[in-house]
Design a binder for these strands. Structure first.
Length: 596
RNA sequence: GGUCCCGUAGCUCAGCUGGAUAGAGCAACAGCCUUCUAAGCUGUGGGCCAUUGGUUCGAAUCCAAUCGGGAUCACCA
């Protein structure tokens, strides 16, 4: 039985008997004893002093006495005001550690399934421009949440829905036709998505020029924006696309093909992948039938002008259009249809997660509410994994103003910095050229990923490209470096860590005990992180573990230790530390090198 | 204006299912490399946890209001 459960049960029984209360073990909240005090676990006794009809000190004593007799693992206790701190025996932690270190992948549950299936959508790029920093956060977050949930035995289906159609795609296409001179990724040497993105910017330039020319001739601004020839051409192209015009479709396929080639490269660098990719060009007509059904059920209302709406004012939301007066879909129509389709396609889904920025909080509230009103009981299992924007020191990123941080540039920059730093530190000996390239990649991406994942997803975060990302302190490279150091020690021990049998007689040093206690927490941390869809929980835990190891390392020599049993125990201890660091970082999608 | 989110050290962030003296990193300053990798460790300084009330034995944490910042409220996607 898990020790915390045992303690809770014992304490619950004790206070029920002593103070005539009727608590259950789940009412008992134990916390870890703060470092300044002696003990392993702490019970706050304030809530019980009324029933105990005595002082907090006496209350603690009474409960402590019962605990002491209940289990030989509990060796002593002390009471400070309303805090009952009790200690578990050296042997308890040693035994605990033996079990931790004997597990192949401690904390990361084996292949056995929980029976729960989660569909997780993330990335969702547009095919008119390359990925930027915002997408990076989205992708890293989605991927990490998926991996962390897999450790809980859940079957996670990672999906990506590509926005490959619509007016914005046509803008790039028109601009390419007009100004492109047949430029291709091959002829220009540009990555496909960057090439297409370039023409999206070209469109905007040309469009602004035309609007300006028209307003100078006296047209009102709004009128000019509607009547600019290039805009009219774009709208015409969209109609042709919808009609299946071969020429337009061919161009569309060609240019989207370039974009996909470019995305594939970026995704690979980011280390993310998908089980299934949806394309909006296939799904954008979905949802119209749903609107019909909703009308019949009386969930939706048809207005005089022919548009269909849902009135959500009673739910503190507004009226929402679900079908335009001309009978065409709006965005949410498609989302309704896609959601329903997915649950049909994967009947086993218990949870549907959408990784989308918090500017769409309202949209998803409405979406889920509508699904609920339509009577889909899985609507309550839909979850919007909302994350804050990545802001630059100057404020928001705006693609039209050229203040976006491009994902490829960013990643390349990180790898270049990793290279520089590594060379400066002179840590390049003994590596082949290929190994070095791989190492720079690992460190640079590790820095970027950790930087983004360590902050709570729902909060907005600041990214300063000038100061870039540090490699010292609370960073990915620090964790990677620590792992490499441990591996270096283990190498000197010729990899025999697994053969070590831990002696019963070891008296644990403070730092050793702290390390074991922290390792003991790992499974609970993973579970919490999985349930809250928050990778930062794991990220911050790994940092704590790493920092603790470094302190231990400075205080307790490992290889220089004279006593053979202590030395072997420490080897085993750091071996387990390394594997938790590695597994934890893997959950975040971050590689840790064996050497660096 | 309605709704939602955020406000913790100079900066970037933890801590938030109420509990002991609010923690890290960066930046500043002072130490530690005859070594198991110093991308490290130790120490110093730095805080009215936005403000004001409330609930409580106890509030950074819960509630309300206020002030600041952001998002959103399209027959856009």
């Amino acid at each position: 039985m898990n020790i915390e459960h045992f303690l809770a049960t014992t304490i619950s029984q004790a206070i029920n008997q002593l103070f005539e209360l009727s608590t259950t073990p789940t009412d008992i909240i134990l916390q870890k004893t703060k470092k300044e005090f002696e003990g392993d676990f702490t019970l706050v006794t304030f809530p019980y002093i009324k029933a105990a009809k005595t002082t907090p000190e006496k209350t603690g004593e009474l409960i402590g006495d019962v605990l002491l007799k209940s289990n030989p693992s509990i060796t002593k206790f002390n009471v400070v005001k309303g805090f009952l701190n009790f200690s578990l025996s050296n042997n308890f932690w040693l035994t605990e550690f033996k079990s931790i270190s004997s597990e192949e992948n401690y904390g990361i549950k084996p292949a056995k399934s929980s029976g729960k299936q989660i569909m997780l959508e993330y990335s969702s790029p547009n095919t008119n421009k390359p990925l930027h920093l915002g997408h990076v956060r989205n992708n890293l977050l989605g991927y990490a949440v998926a991996t962390i949930n897999q450790t809980q035995g859940h079957d996670v289906v990672k999906v990506n829905i590509v926005n490959d159609r619509g007016i914005h795609i046509c803008k790039s296409m028109i601009a390419w036709q007009k100004f492109g001179n047949g430029e291709t990724p091959q002829s220009s040497g540009l990555k496909g998505d960057h090439l297409v993105g370039k023409y999206y910017v070209e469109f905007d330039k040309a469009y602004k020029k035309e609007v300006q020319a028209l307003t100078e001739k006296g047209a009102p601004k709004e009128e000019a924006e509607k009547q600019a020839p290039i805009m009219l051409q774009t709208q015409e192209m969209l109609l042709k696309w919808e009609a299946g015009d071969k020429e337009v479709i061919d161009l569309w396929k060609l240019m989207n093909g370039w974009v996909y080639e470019g995305f594939a490269v970026s995704y690979k660098k980011l280390g993310v992948d998908f089980d299934k990719i949806y394309y909006e060009s296939n799904t954008y007509l979905l949802g119209k039938e749903t609107v019909q059904e909703g009308l019949e059920k009386g969930v939706f209302v048809k207005k005089d002008n022919g548009s269909v709406i849902i009135d959500l004012t009673a739910d503190k939301l507004d009226e929402k259009v679900v079908l335009r007066s001309d009978g065409t879909s709006v965005y949410i129509t498609q989302d309704l249809g896609t959601a329903i389709e997915r649950f049909k396609e994967y009947p086993g889904i218990n949870k549907m997660i959408y990784t989308v920025g918090n500017e769409q909080d309202y949209h998803f509230k409405v979406l889920f509410k509508i699904l609920e009103k339509l009577g889909y009981d899985w609507a309550k299992e839909c979850y919007h994994l909302s994350y804050g924007m990545v802001e630059l020191p100057e404020g928001k990123m705006k693609s039209r103003e050229g203040t976006v941080v491009d994902a490829d540039d960013l990643m390349d920059g990180m790898v270049a910095t990793a290279k520089e730093t590594t060379e400066e530190l002179g840590k390049v000996e003994g590596f082949t050229k290929d190994e070095l390239e791989h190492l720079y990649q690992t460190i640079g991406m590790g820095a970027l990923k950790y930087f983004i994942l360590k902050v709570d997803p729902k909060k907005k975060m600041l990214f300063d490209p000038k100061e870039s990302i540090d490699f010292n302190g609370h960073t990915g490279p620090f964790i990677q470096y620590t792992h490499a150091r441990i591996k270096s020690i283990l190498r000197k021990f010729e990899g025999k860590a697994n053969e070590i049998v831990i002696a019963e007689t070891i008296m644990l040093h403070d730092k050793e005990k702290e390390l074991i206690k922290l390792q003991y927490d790992f499974p609970a941390i993973l579970e919490e992180s999985a349930n809250s869809y928050n990778p930062a929980v794991v990220a911050n835990y790994i940092y704590e573990l790493t920092k603790l190891f470094n302190q231990f390392y400075n205080e307790c020599p490992v290889l220089k230790e004279e006593n053979k049993t202590v030395k072997e125990f420490r080897i085993k201890l750091i071996n387990t530390t390394a594997s938790i660091i590695k597994n934890g970082m893997r959950c975040l999608g971050i590689d840790v090198p064996e050497r660096m």
